Lab assay of single mutants.
Amino acid sequence: QTQEFDNEEEARKAEKELRKENRRVTVTQENGRWRVTWD
Rank of each mutant, 00 (worst) to 15 (best):
K20F: 09
T26K: 05
Q1G: 12
Q29L: 09
K16Q: 10
K13I: 13
R23M: 14
T2H: 06
E10F: 04
W34I: 01
T26A: 07
T2K: 05
R19S: 10
R23H: 10
E15K: 01
E10Y: 03
E30W: 10
E9F: 13
T26D: 05
L18P: 00
R19V: 11
R23C: 05
N22W: 13
N7Q: 04
N7A: 04
E30Q: 11
V27F: 03
E30D: 09
T37C: 05
W34N: 00
E17F: 08
R35H: 11
R12I: 06
Q3M: 14
R19L: 13
R24T: 15
R12V: 05
R35E: 04
E9L: 12
R24W: 12
K16A: 15
V25E: 00
T28E: 07
Q29N: 13
A11V: 03
Q1S: 11
E4T: 12
Q3S: 07
V25P: 09
Q29H: 14
W38G: 02
Q3D: 06
W38A: 05
Q1L: 06
R19C: 08
D6S: 10
Q3T: 06
A14W: 15
N31P: 02
E17D: 03
T26Q: 06
D6K: 05
D6I: 07
R24Q: 13
V36G: 00
D39M: 13
D39T: 10
N22L: 08
W38S: 06
W38K: 02
K16S: 10
R12M: 06
T28G: 05
N7W: 04
R23V: 14
E9V: 10
R35D: 02
R12A: 03
T26L: 09
E4H: 08
Q29E: 14
Q29A: 07
Q3W: 14
E8N: 02
Q29I: 08
G32A: 02
N7S: 14
K13Y: 04
E8P: 04
N31F: 08
L18T: 02
R33N: 08
K20M: 11
R23K: 13
Q29K: 14
D39S: 13
V27G: 00
R33M: 12
R24Y: 15
T37N: 09
R33A: 09
T28K: 06
V25K: 01
Q3H: 07
T37F: 09
R33G: 05
E21H: 14
E21A: 05
A11W: 02
R24E: 14
R33S: 05
W38I: 06
R19I: 06
E17W: 11
R23D: 12
D6R: 05
R12E: 04
V27E: 00
R35L: 15
R12D: 03
Q29M: 13
W34A: 00
L18Y: 07
R19A: 13
V36P: 01
A11H: 00
L18S: 03
V25M: 02
W34Q: 00
Q3E: 12
T2I: 14
Q1V: 07
T26Y: 13
A11Y: 02
A11T: 01
R33D: 02
T37A: 04
D39V: 14
W34P: 00
E4L: 15
A11K: 01
N31M: 09
R23F: 13
A11F: 02
T28P: 01
E9A: 08
G32I: 02
K13P: 00
E17L: 11
E10M: 07
N22S: 08
E17G: 06
R23W: 14
G32N: 06
E8M: 04
T26S: 03
V25W: 01
N22P: 04
E30H: 12
A11L: 03
W38T: 05
Q29V: 13
T28F: 12
K13W: 13
V25Q: 00
R19Y: 06
E10S: 10
R19P: 02
W34R: 02
R19D: 05
A11S: 03
N22F: 13
T2V: 11
E9H: 13
R12P: 01
Q1F: 14
K13T: 11
D6P: 07
E8G: 02
E21P: 06
G32H: 04
T37M: 05
K13R: 13
E10Q: 08
R33Y: 11
T2F: 15
R24F: 15
T28W: 12
K13D: 12
R24M: 10
T26W: 07
V25H: 01
R35Y: 12
T2W: 15
E21M: 14
E8W: 06
E15W: 07
N22K: 10
Q3F: 15
F5T: 01
K20I: 09
E15H: 04
E15F: 08
T28R: 07
E15T: 05
T28D: 05
F5K: 01
R19T: 09
R19Q: 09
W34L: 01
N22E: 05
E17C: 12
L18E: 03
V36F: 01
K20T: 10
E8L: 03
Q1T: 13
E15Q: 11
R35A: 08
N7Y: 07
A11Q: 00
W38Q: 02
E4W: 15
V25R: 00
R24P: 10
A11I: 01
E4G: 04
V36W: 00
Q3G: 04
E8R: 02
D39P: 04
R12K: 09
K16H: 14
E8K: 02
D6H: 07
D6G: 07
V27K: 01
D6N: 12
